[in-house]
Amino acid sequence: MESIIPLIVLGSPIVWFIVTYNQLIRYRTSIKNAWSQIDVQLKRRYDLIPNLVEVAKGYMSHERGTLEEVIKARSQAVDASGLQEQTMAENFLTQSLRSLFAVVENYPNLKADQNMLSLQESLTSTENMISFARQFYNDEVMKYNAMIQSIPANIIANLSKFTGEEFFKIDDSSQKAVPKVKF
């Protein structure tokens, strides 16, 4: 009976270490997953744009410039590597899409086109998903960062080299208001 007490005293820090360590690992993989979700949504948007241009082409033959700009912005965003570059390319793409939709306003036939309507709906949905995915990513980062900095989990975090993750930030001021495709 007496041998149990030292066992508990020695054992409980080990149990606590394992539980906390696993918790940290869970958070870190969750953050990775959240980040890849953003990429999935961005990819969805890239896939929608060619269809959009294809539909718009038929109606707005005088607006070659706008359409070509969208195509260019898209390929730039696809090729971009690194967080900084990608963010810039995404901003450019959002802007060019915005100007495209401003032009679409002048074409009532195009606006009423069934394909165009469903594409617009898909794009709105994708924009929302991108912002929700970023929001979820930031939430996860916040939970993780808070944990590795607070006592006592910070001991384990320091020992096992858990470093804080970066938040997703939007530098472009025009992007701070959620990029919304307005129709």
Partner: peptide, 8 residues
């Protein structure tokens, strides 16, 4: 689908 993304 959007809200699903928001919940992870």
């Amino acid at each position: 689908e959007e809200v699903r993304v928001a919940t992870g």
